[in-house]
Design a binder for these strands. Structure first.
Lengths: 213, 213
DNA sequence: TAGCTTTTGAGAGCTACTCTCATTTCATGG
DNA sequence: CCATGAAATGAGAGTAGCTCTCAAAAGCTA
């Protein structure tokens, strides 16, 4: 799920001789652009950072930046994990309630990311709160993930993946999960994100705890 | 709620002498810009329509267009209803389950819009499906509405409006409702949008119908 | 090393959007 | 009804994201 996923490729460094020099260079360039972007944003903020500056620091031309990332927001947000998560989701036992499957997959993704680049996850959430364009792009990319979710839900519920019910349900999950990282960032990154996700999934599964019976 | 709300001001035409000439002109200009935009988009599509063209057809300068609408997307999406809906929501009896309140308010807004400008509602949904930027802006504006929703939910649930639970719940409703208009547009605007909203609210309230017990 | 393919850089161009400043247009009190 | 102040407009320059084209550079293959 996007806002809480790794920035750096899981196949990260370029020290793998089985790939041709060309491929290795491409990976390096990608990383250079991202690193430069993160650094500049940390120094100057998102809006004040231009693609030209990013290109300069990454030692490539602006054209190349756009060749690697379709938009400036994508430099911050792209992750290579989503496809993996979908597989993982599909691999869960068919009898398992989808909320549990989701819980499992989310935790997996979060753990993986935390281990690899605990900074990125925070930076993203933070930018999501501050920069509308980034938040928008985040929602976009999450709703793409939502489309995949549909199928998993459909399989388990017996409903059609493109039925109104399944679509609404999937998108409501996405919306709820999105809000978690917003909440986390707005409250100074307090607490363990994974616990927050758990709580959110409880709400999404069972509704709000009824406090006045 | 945004994507299904009126394009034209509920206080529409400029034939109200109690307002000064200045105010009446402003309303007229707003309408001229919106009308021009809708027409041009119908002719050429969203991306092919430039702000310059809009300005020309509306007989104002491009500067003026941006003075009235912060972004091009806003020309299509802005509505003056959201505040009204929040009031309406708050006016519902305190004992009523919020889902019913929401249902009521949504139906109200939809009926109002249908009566005033049945075209706009379709155009918006359609653009939401086709143009990522518009969809993004739609989501943005809906999540603003979601912030208001929080308070109504908080009042009725006894939880804090800014608690994780309430925020997640509110945003999941928003996500679900957003998906309705996407679904509607993608399926050729078949069926009554209000019925679809009703069905969506059922799902959001009770979860998916369990078809294999 | 020669020839082919892919990647890159340079640069022109478009458009959304911002800002400034002079001009016009409305409002108002004498 | 006109003079003065306030608000809205237009013109224009400027920025930045993003696209496209084309020629040079770099890696690949034989």
């Amino acid at each position: 799920m996007n806002p809480m996923t790794a920035a750096r490729s899981p196949l990260s460094p370029a020290d793998r001789p089985q790939l041709g020099l060309r491929e290795r260079k491409k990976i390096k360039t990608r990383e250079a652009i991202r690193t430069a972007t993160y650094a500049l944003i940390k120094e100057q903020g998102y809006d004040a950072t231009t693609v030209e500056q990013i290109a300069e620091r990454a030692e490539v031309s602006p054209s190349t930046v756009f060749r690697y990332f379709p938009t400036k927001e994508d430099i911050v947000l792209t992750d290579e994990y989503d496809p993996l998560m979908v597989e993982e989701l599909r691999a869960r036992p068919a009898g398992e309630p989808w909320i549990d499957s989701l819980r499992h997959v989310m935790r997996l993704a979060l753990d993986g990311t935390m281990a690899e680049d605990p900074e990125a996850i925070r930076v993203r959430a933070h930018l999501g709160v501050q920069v509308p364009a980034v938040r928008a792009r985040m929602l976009e990319s999450m709703s793409e993930t939502g489309r995949m979710l549909r199928e998993a839900i459909a399989e388990r519920s017996g409903l059609a993946a493109d039925s109104l019910q399944v679509r609404v349900y999937a998108m409501s999950l996405i919306g709820g999960l999105m809000e978690v990282s917003m909440y986390w960032a707005e409250n100074g990154f307090e607490g363990d994100l994974r616990d927050l996700v758990d709580q959110a999934l409880d709400v999404l599964d069972q509704g709000l705890p009824t406090k006045k019976p």
